[in-house]
């Protein structure tokens, strides 16, 4: 076996470049970026894999010379649109990091209400410029999405590793139930809790159900999710349509399904 510290890097003999990575945040809690700092044991290896040129949660300042931009947050202000366009122009690869960037996230809940009312309610006498919360893909081309609120550190590391070595990025097609059962959980519906696990894309390792909290669909719909049956199950178990819509709407991943429901059912 050749020396493991040998440089330059390669993977199976295919040359690997250590990419320059920048983290950015638009309207968000920066919780996804914080996730990346959890578990220091893999942090050093991650920092060896990529060169981080900008990461507000962990370093001050930052360069504008990057190839991969991991952008957290939704777009809610016009200056953010401009910033996003500049990032897009610079980045070879623009990654939407987390539910806000992918779908609008919790922020997009405000889109349900009149903007003036939202401004008054949130900022009172000191209103600021704010627009409906939108996902990045409403403004620029997004090359890759990393789902979750927050993202799962292990998944981000896996995806970034695959990006670096040039392997295709794959997500689970199946819903959260698959991981939930593998973890030995009793179904939350059995405990009387609603859960969107049956229609939500897995990859989180059933993070919430593991703690006996029903899924809120932060990762968006699984491939070919059977929403009609999900609704029937909620009805049958006595959860009102409004409860279900609230849940589906929480992170924005089910926006088109909710719109169809509202159109069909006359819900607000």
């Amino acid at each position: 076996m050749p020396d493991s510290s040998s440089t330059p890097k390669n993977y199976l003999g295919v040359p690997v470049k250590r990419p320059k990575v920048a983290f950015f945040e638009l309207s968000s809690c920066e919780g996804c970026q914080l996730q990346m700092l959890n578990n220091e044991s893999s942090l050093l290896a991650f920092l060896d894999l990529v060169e981080i040129v900008r990461f507000r949660e962990a370093m001050s300042g930052g360069g504008d010379d990057y190839e991969i931009a991991l952008v957290e947050g939704s777009v809610t202000r016009s200056d953010e649109v401009e910033r996003l366009k500049i990032i897009r122009a610079q980045a070879r690869l623009l990654v939407a990091l987390g539910s806000c960037a992918c779908f609008g996230g919790v922020n997009q809940l405000k889109n349900r209400f009149p903007l003036d009312w939202v401004k008054r309610e949130v900022y009172g006498e000191h209103p600021i410029d704010t627009a409906p919360a939108r996902p990045l893909s409403d403004f620029v081309a997004v090359d890759l999405k990393i789902y979750g609120c927050p993202v799962k550190k292990e998944e981000v590391e896996r995806i970034v590793t695959d990006l670096v070595i040039g392997k295709d990025i794959a997500y689970p097609d199946y819903p959260v139930c698959m991981e939930c059962k593998a973890n030995g959980n009793l179904c939350l519906f059995e405990l009387g809790e609603p859960c969107l696990g049956p229609v939500t894309r897995a990859g989180c390792d059933a993070w919430c159900p593991n703690s006996r909290a029903g899924c809120w669909g932060c990762r968006g719909p699984a491939t070919d999710a059977n929403l009609a049956q999900m609704l029937a199950i909620m009805d049958e178990r006595g959860f009102s349509r409004e409860t279900v819509i609230d849940r589906l709407e929480c992170f924005g991943g089910f926006a088109s399904q909710v719109a169809a429901l509202r159109a069909a059912g006359g819900h607000r």
């Binding site: 003999g13 295919v14 794959a170």
Partner: peptide, 12 residues
């Protein structure tokens, strides 16, 4: 046609 074969197209 997939992840493995795409990577194979890059190896030496």
């Amino acid at each position: 046609a997939g992840s493995l074969t795409n990577f194979l197209s890059k190896v030496r």
